[in-house]
């Protein structure tokens, strides 16, 4: 009976996939390190062509440019881990942006009130998403798509579709008296040691927290189990519904924090600010699948995915690539990453 293990894999799957045999070594290396190698080559290329690319100041600029997208992407990673998806993150960020602006400008609220309200909005939206998906069994894509539309419309209603700025005139004819508090604006403008913006620090902290949570705690372990085989997780005693709802709440809160940082950076409640956040964040999380050949959602991959896109766009901009090519480039990176994840790997299907 001893040689059983050597052959067991060939006995397992019933279908056709084993036709593609051999060449396993190279493919495995390509799957595992392909994207990271690409990243390193890219940095070397830009660094040689444009030495200022590697200056500390420029790298901080890159980090700042990706920080908000990365925060949203880290949140959506939690929903991807439980086998779900959250399309509402961009809209949650936009809603948070409008909420914080409204509280400060119209109600004259303080920094804490503004941030606290946003976090609450994110948590509530996540809870509602989770309940729609878990209790009413609406497919995740549809539930969060509906929520996205709902929020994008909802944020326009209080101001009749106008952006929020200090001294704006209200629908009833009066003039708003509040202003953005200095402390709130500092979230977007203050730099630690005159160099590192707050948003970058928040991103790094959240990335560390979510990585530890997903990879090293039993909660994360159970979330991965749910994403891989929900029925098995349930029959192993896991409270599957609670975990799935929690994942959407994490996603909602992270998106709201992203919205707060965006509001602080822009300094006004701009109705169109959050537009591209959703697609960029989802792309970062999906690129993350390919980092180190994980083949599944993971927080470190998501962070590297966001960085990858940021570095590429920054480098190309320095080399005078036109701005309108940006989406094309992001798309190309995403397709390449998906090829690494799904096309080259030997995952059973």
């Amino acid at each position: 009976m001893q040689p059983e293990l050597a052959r067991a894999p060939t006995e397992a799957g019933p279908t056709v996939r084993e036709r593609r045999e051999g060449s396993g070594g190279f493919r495995q290396i390509a799957v595992r390190y392909g994207l990271v190698t690409l990243l390193v080559l890219m940095v070397i290329f830009f660094g040689t062509a444009e030495p200022s690319f590697l200056s500390v100041r420029n790298l901080v600029i890159v980090l700042q440019s990706v920080s908000i997208v990365a925060i949203l992407a880290l949140g959506v990673t939690a929903t991807l881990v439980v086998g779900g998806f959250d399309l509402s993150i961009g809209a949650v960020a936009a809603t948070a942006l409008m909420t914080s602006s409204y509280i400060m400008v119209v109600f004259g609220g303080g920094t804490l009130a503004a941030v606290g309200a946003c976090v609450a909005v994110g948590a509530i939206v996540g809870l509602v998403n989770g309940l729609l998906i878990v209790r009413l069994r609406i497919p995740d894509l549809l539930a969060t798509l509906g929520m996205m539309f709902l929020l994008l419309g909802l944020q326009l209603i209080p101001t009749q579709g106008r952006s929020i700025a200090s001294g704006m005139s209200m629908p009833d004819g009066s003039t708003a008296t509040g202003t953005f508090t200095p402390a709130f604006l500092a979230l977007g403008r203050y730099r630690v040691s005159d160099l590192v913006p707050i948003s970058v620090i928040v991103m790094l902290v959240l990335a560390a927290v979510i990585t530890v949570f997903l990879t090293f705690t039993r909660f994360g372990r159970v979330m991965y189990a749910i994403g891989s085989n929900e029925r098995a997780a349930r029959l192993a005693g896991a409270p599957v519904e609670a975990y799935r709802i929690a994942a959407y709440m994490i996603s909602g809160v992270f998106a709201a924090l992203g919205g707060v940082l965006l509001a602080a950076r822009v300094g006004r409640g701009d109705v169109s600010s959050g537009n591209s956040l959703l697609l960029d964040a989802v792309a970062a999380a999906l690129i993350g699948f390919a980092v180190f050949g994980a083949g599944k959602p993971n927080a470190i991959g998501t962070a590297i995915g966001a960085l990858f896109v940021g570095l590429l766009l920054n480098g190309l901009t320095m080399m005078n690539a036109p701005y309108y090519a940006q989406d094309f480039i992001k798309g190309a990176v995403l397709v390449a990453a998906l090829m690494f994840t799904f096309g080259l790997s030997n995952r059973p299907r």
Binding site: R218, Y224, A225, R231, P348
Partner: peptide, 29 residues
């Protein structure tokens, strides 16, 4: 369909219902 988690290795499949017993403070495994 109902017992094994395909993305998990042997150890993770074995301990799945009892991760609490294999974790310390803050749920660290």
């Amino acid at each position: 369909g109902a017992s094994l988690v395909p993305d998990f290795d042997l150890t993770q499949n074995m301990t799945l219902p009892f991760t609490r017993a294999f974790s310390g403070t803050a749920g660290l495994l």
